[in-house]
Amino acid sequence: MKIESYFLLGVAAFFGLIGIIYWVTSYEQAGTMMLIGSCFLGLLPGAYYLFWHRRMGNRLEDRPDATIEEGAGRVDAFPSSSIWPFVLGLGAFATVLAFAFGVWFIFPAAALIISALVGATLESRRGGTV
């Protein structure tokens, strides 16, 4: 994960540098805050990846000489189908409609969102549904 972390730390370094230059030349607050925020967006995950790279060393995908055989075994568990993202999307849709058309939309929105969160959680615990 070394290159990944350097990539993100590069983002942080660029925005840190540009943020400082921008502030001392313009004294404009909004742009400076956004540049500093972008600096942290790179710094936090970049530092995290670097920390774990130092503990874990190179993964198979980091090694140019790694073979497919070395990676044999489980990659991960992937859900193949789930209705809950759709239900959650409908809940978000109803929520924004509440802001435009009337507060009563919040009731179906809450019902959809809560059922989606509960359903997705139980689905993960049970190992899948649908």
């Binding site: 073979t67 990676g71 991960d76 568990a77 859900p79």
Partner: peptide, 13 residues
């Protein structure tokens, strides 16, 4: 359903 995905084994053969 949840699929447990294994990597495959061909490589340079």
């Amino acid at each position: 359903m949840t699929d447990l995905i294994d990597t495959t084994l061909t490589g340079g053969d």
